[in-house]
Design a binder for these strands. Sequence first.
DNA 1: CCTTAATTTAGAATTATTCTAAACTGCTTG
DNA 2: CAAGCAGTTTAGAATAATTCTAAATTAAGG
Lengths: 140, 140
Amino acid sequence: MRQKKSALASVTVLERLRAAGLRPTRQRLALAKLLFARGHRHVSAEQLFNEARGQRVDVSLATVYNALHDFTGKGLLREISIDSSSSYFDTNTGNHHHFYFERTGRLEDIASDQVSISALPSAPGGAEISRVDVIIRVKA
Amino acid sequence: MRQKKSALASVTVLERLRAAGLRPTRQRLALAKLLFARGHRHVSAEQLFNEARGQRVDVSLATVYNALHDFTGKGLLREISIDSSSSYFDTNTGNHHHFYFERTGRLEDIASDQVSISALPSAPGGAEISRVDVIIRVKA
DNA sequence: CCTTAATTTAGAATTATTCTAAACTGCTTG
DNA sequence: CAAGCAGTTTAGAATAATTCTAAATTAAGG
C-alpha cells in the first residue's frame, strides 16, 4: 500500500505539471511532490531546498527558485511578500487571506469566507484589480 | 514669507523629533523635512537618499536606513513590504490601506473608512492583533 | 568649554535572489 | 528507437537591498 500510495501521488503530480504545460523533469516532480503531497503550505525557497536535500533529492538552489517561479507563473503557487527579508510561496492559490505571526514569521491561512470586505473603492482609472490581500499581523 | 514658512517647517520637524525622543541631528532634520514637508508619501530608502542628495543634503545611505528605522520605531513612519525587492516607508501612520500598482510599483493610500472589513476571525490562541493590512493589487 | 553617549559614516559583509553559459535531458520526429 | 533540439538544470559569479563594523563626529548637559 505504501508503494501504491506513493506511486499515485507521483502520477497526480506528473499530471498537474503536464496540465500546466511544464515538462515533468526529475527535479520538478520531486519538488512538486514535496509541495503538494499534503495539505496547503507556505514555503520559502531556502526551506524547500533544505527539505529536498533532507530527502536526498539532488537539486540546486537555482532550480528551486526556477521551479517556484515556473509553478507560480502557471498558477500552481501564489507568491507572498510580507516580510521584505524573503518571499513565501503558498500552495493554496484560491481566494483566501493570512495571519502573519510577527515573532515567528509563520503564515496561516484564513478562508475567504471568514473575512468579508465591503465597500471596496474602485481602482483608480477603472484599472483592473488583480487580487486583494488581507494580512492580519499578530504579535505572537 | 518663504523664509518664515521654511523656518516654521523646521521647527515643527524639530519638535516632532524631540517629542519622539530622537536627537534632532542635522541629518535627521533634513530627512524628516523631506518626508513630512507635504502630504503623505511612500518612499524607499534609495529614493529618499537620492532626494536628499538632489537637495545637497550631505548624508550617507546608512544614515538614511538608520533614520527610517528610528522613525519607524518611534511611530513616525510605518514600514510596508509588498514587493520583496525593497520596502517602503509610509508617512501615514494612521489606520488605512493601500492600492498597489503592479506595473509601476507605486502605492496609493485608501482611507480606512473606504474599506470595511467584517467578521475578522479572532487571532489563534487569543493572540493580539497588531495591525490589519489590506492591499488591493491593481494591474496598471 | 568638556565629557559622554548618541549618531554618522565609509566601506566591508551579509542575504536573498538572479544571471550566465555550459552541460544535460525530455520529447518529437523520422 | 536514434537523433536532435528546445527546454532545463547547474555551479558559480553577479546583483541589489540592507546591515554591520569600528572609527570619527556631534549634540546635550553640567
